[in-house]
Design a binder for these strands. Structure first.
Lengths: 251, 251
DNA sequence: CAGTGGTCTAGACCACATT
DNA sequence: ATGTGGTCTAGACCACTGT
């Protein structure tokens, strides 16, 4: 029989949404951390007092959002940042022949900065708020093609040091996760074209004013806080940004 | 009881995938046309000899792909092209303040052309194959900001006339659907930056070489044929391309 | 082998839209 | 009142993984 009394969070929400919400709470509160296995479906059914079908529908949505990952026969795991996940879900630049390659990342600088009006609006902080600023140069096929200009609200990254950023052997999102407990759940990107500024032109070795693809990415946490604002400037005479379903590949 | 004998298409496929495949066949073969209502779930269960849960899982996937649309209490319908659907699923340009607006489309030309090497490769036709070429100028907020350069394999659009294209009061995808029976199911887009060519600069009233966002879109049919190749050139000093989940909006 | 997720069933009740 | 899709259940069996 279906249970009569629902949690007070329920406001006409389907039961599976309630369950999903409770799972998200457990994730947000750190009951299960990235890489952890979560309890078996049977266990979770008992815990929430729902049937398998309902539990599965909740987990279905979380896997579709790349928050959980199921492995038949092994269990269900909390998604964790890795190089592969970065390439799969966050890095959208391909060579024009369709190949995809992990970029060589060259650290240029870590500085302290303050939010200007635009950065503050995009980050959801006050103008003048303290930020870290990371600049990286990325190479593909042995050629420098991308400058990343990354802004991080200081509050989320206490005492971040240049050594941490320079000497890491992981993606930045792994660093955020492992060293600061910041889980980047999803990103949104806005794209424009711009001419290379003097600084960017110098770092990429191209003439000032060269048309570049300008990607403005916001990275969001579990709580929908903006934890990173990244401006990427891409030379696109040999590469392209692919916008399509993750599932349907780059054919 | 679960049926023992499966169709010969089944090669270890889950039953709901078989059902999905059969639904796709009926759509492809025109048993149900865009805008039509399809039989009720109960009917389809009988027809395919499966339970509701299985049927629903098949339909779930088709709705997630925007091929079918469910309306509680009314029925399930075949997705049909409309202005709203175009804005929702295919047009990704927003004003920088986040507003979205339907562009004013100004017809410039319809000509016959032949596929060059690049176009042939992208369209999946032979070099030199006959094409129609449409050029449109799009305005947002009263300002010309986009040039669309559209290539169509002649085979899919027999006897297309300038009047059809010029005088339509619908989106092009509605025209393809209503006048040629071509259903655009999905698109994929590649983005680059380029400098405005002399032609584009003249049509947009900007200096030659101005950095533009260059969107290369392929539109695919039910059969995964490329039915349209569209080059869009966008002025992005007041607008941007938004790449994010359709569901999560442009906040 | 035991435990996990993946699929499928048969039927119930609910919410919504139309007649 | 009827018919539609939306949710939920309780239990079965399959496929895969690790011991």
């Amino acid at each position: 029989m279906q249970q009569i009394f629902r949690s007070d969070v329920a406001l006409g929400l389907p039961l599976y949404r309630e369950v999903k919400h409770k799972l998200m709470e457990s994730l947000r509160d750190g009951e299960w951390k990235p890489g952890d296995i979560i309890p078996a479906e049977k266990r979770l059914c008992e815990r929430f007092g729902v049937s398998v079908g309902t539990l599965r529908k909740a987990v279905d949505e979380l896997t579709a959002e790349n928050i959980l990952i199921r492995h038949q026969g092994r269990g269900t795991f909390v998604a964790s940042h890795s190089q592969d996940r970065y390439m799969f879900g966050f890095f959208h630049i391909y060579a024009q022949d369709g190949r995809k390659e992990y970029p060589k990342v060259e650290f240029i600088s870590l500085t302290r900065d303050k939010a200007d009006a635009d950065g503050a609006a995009r980050l959801g902080v006050k103008k003048g708020a303290k930020l870290f600023r990371i600049i990286n140069r990325l190479s593909l096929g042995g050629r420098a093609v991308i400058i990343d200009d990354i802004l991080l609200p200081e509050q989320f990254f206490p005492n971040m040091t240049e050594a941490q950023v320079r000497d890491r052997r992981t993606t930045l999102y792994q660093l955020y996760q492992d060293s600061f407990g910041i889980g980047v759940l999803r990103t949104e990107e806005r794209l424009q074209a711009c001419g290379a500024s003097a600084d960017i032109a110098r770092m990429l070795g191209i003439p000032e004013g060269t048309p570049l693809l300008h990607i403005i990415r916001r990275a969001l946490s579990f709580r929908d806080e903006v934890v990173e604002l990244r401006h990427s400037y891409v030379i696109t005479d040999g590469h392209e940004y692919y916008a399509g379903d993750d599932n349907q590949g780059h054919g």
